[in-house]
Nucleic acid binder design. Structure first.
Length: 542
DNA sequence: GCCGTTTTCGGCCCGACTGTTTTCAGTCG
């Protein structure tokens, strides 16, 4: 709605800063950690920067009456059929309006279809191309998980023999659109002849863009060494970080662009930031989320992690869900390779209708044996237990004899409403063995939205009752999401890192969890896996 | 329309690319 207002205002030649204000408001809503409706319920709408008095009032009206009189007025002044056209790349409000008027498009439903016919008839090739791009779904929701982007970028750089990644991939965002690569040597010819290329999108003296056979767009920029710092900074973004940076520069009487600061060039990023009176800001923090105003954290690093607290071996405890591919012994050998001090086995809980206590006892004995035969890695005996809708865990009295503690997590009935879901999770977390809330939103990137929870309640409960919340490092999960990690860190809620590995290979996914932790401003003191074994066990045993 | 450690008034990022009703508006990142 906010974007629609901005578009309509653009057509109506409203004050351009009012238009920007609406766009900023839309972005603020999209980036909010809470559903806007929930904030409204709690009367906290105005706490979101970018929503001022006027827009807050309009949103209030929207939730109370289902529509906003002022916005309806604005929409009525422009043709409805222009709005769907805005999804076409290269088509903004002005172009959409022009097209709709020219073609006398009346309704929203078939506007794009009619437009395409017109474009073909009039031989407007670039417009036809744009519509086709739109139809291919190349516009939105075409992001890939970060591990796939890493692989594509890695293969490309290996092929080129030069280059570093920029953009969202360098900021370690969970999902990636285009892949940006920068190089100091001119390798454009080699780049556009990449074997997996299907199309050269554009090619010029300072860079090129190609599309790969998997549909991914890769951009290459050749950067002069003297301008490496400012160019890296500019192309790493984020957009909002850069805008804030330039505003700050203006206040200091300086002008920032990708070539430098007021004409001065920078060969590295640190000097660039320092020149503006700022310390170097790690790429993961460049989202205009307080990195300019606040003292920067000493971010957690991979080497701080002393163990993995979520993994599934092939040990058969007759679980409700899948087993892992590798034995406990194989997982231990891999953990040794990763130089861990300890790991936790966290197979799924035994299913209904089996003798759970007998199974847990057998597993306990097996692990005790394993502890004796393996000298390098300390073993923690946990279990990942399903949270059913009732919140009642399928774990009989006496289980505590055979477990150090449990992770709890949601694996079914993802669509309960927020209050029911929160009650469900809090009930499970109240279980005396519960220590870690694993993959808390249960999202699967690009496949399944996360569950709805009252995060403030969950965080407060965990803080008060000494429960940890997991950052699941599996690249298809990355759950807790970074924005919620930030909230948890602000509230000093303990966090736990786990790969949720089902094989020895996936134990290597820990760096993706570190990325999320860093994007959430986590320091090593926020993460329980950075404790040594004794301290951790003391915490687990309560 | 939003916002504030110089401001409650007077600012609001910057440049590349595209197309063409040809020198600038529109769109994008």
């Amino acid at each position: 709605m906010l974007r629609k207002v901005a578009a309509a205002y653009t057509v109506l030649n409203e004050n351009r800063f009012k238009i920007i204000a609406y766009e900023n408001a839309a972005t603020a809503v999209e980036h909010s950690t809470s559903e806007i409706k929930d904030l409204w319920d709690d009367g906290k709408l105005a706490t979101i920067p970018g929503l001022g008095q006027s827009i807050t009032q309009h949103i209030d009206e929207l939730f109370k009456r289902g529509k906003v009189a002022h916005w309806e007025n604005v929409f009525n002044k422009v043709p409805k059929a222009m709005f769907p056209l805005l999804d076409i790349p290269g088509v903004g409000p002005k172009t959409a309006y022009k097209l709709v008027t020219q073609l006398k498009l009346k309704n929203e439903q078939n506007a794009i279809e009619k437009l395409k016919r017109f474009a073909i008839e009039q031989k407007k090739t670039s417009l036809v191309k744009s519509v086709e791009l739109y139809e291919k779904g190349a516009i939105k929701d075409n992001r890939i998980n970060i591990n796939l982007a890493d692989r594509i970028a890695g293969e490309m750089i290996a092929y080129l023999g030069d280059g570093v990644v920029l953009g969202s991939l360098r900021r370690r965002v969970a999902t990636i659109g285009d892949i940006d690569i920068a190089a100091k040597t001119n390798i454009i010819d080699k780049f556009v002849n990449y074997p997996h290329k299907t199309e050269i999108i554009e090619q010029g003296p300072t860079g090129a863009s190609i599309r790969l056979s998997n549909g991914r767009q890769v951009d290459l920029r050749i950067i002069k060494p003297a301008q490496w710092g400012s160019m890296m900074q500019y192309f790493t973004g984020s957009k909002y970080h850069n805008i804030k940076l330039r505003e700050l520069a203006i206040k200091k009487g300086l002008k920032v662009n990708e070539y430098g600061i007021s004409g001065k060039e920078f060969s590295n990023e640190k000097d660039f930031y320092n020149y503006l009176g700022l310390e170097y800001i790690p790429p993961e923090l460049r989202e205009d989320q307080g990195e300019f105003e606040m003292t920067l954290p000493k971010l957690i690093e991979l080497k701080n992690v002393k163990g993995d607290l979520h993994m599934h071996s092939s040990y058969n405890d007759e679980p409700s869900h899948d087993l892992g591919d590798n034995s406990m012994e194989e997982m231990l050998a891999k953990a040794k390779e990763l130089k861990y001090e300890y790991i936790a086995f966290t197979e799924h809980n035994p299913k209904h209708g089996v003798d759970i206590l007998a199974i847990l006892k057998r597993r306990f004995n097996y692990i005790e044996q394993l502890k004796k035969s393996n000298k390098y890695i300390r073993i923690i005996n946990l279990l990942e237990v399903d949270i059913p809708p009732s919140g009642e865990l399928n774990l009989p009295e006496g289980s505590e004899k055979y477990l150090d503690g449990i992770l709890v997590s949601v694996h079914s009935e993802f669509r309960l409403d927020k209050d029911e879901m929160t009650a469900r999770v809090l009930k499970a977390l109240s279980h005396p063995l519960a220590r870690i809330f694993a993959h808390p939103t249960s999202r699967l990137l690009g496949k399944r939205e996360g569950i709805e929870l009252d995060w403030e309640q969950i965080f407060d409960f965990c803080k008060k009752n000494n429960r940890a919340i997991e950052i699941n490092a599996a690249p298809q999960r990355l759950d807790l999401p970074d924005v919620l990690v930030r909230e948890a860190v602000k509230k000093k809620v303990l966090l736990s890192l786990g790969t949720d590995a089902h094989s020895t290979d996936s134990l290597e996914m820990m760096p993706y969890g570190i990325d999320v932790a860093r994007r959430g401003w986590a320091e090593k003191s926020d993460i329980i896996n950075c404790w040594n074994y004794d301290k951790l066990m003391k915490w687990i045993r309560g």
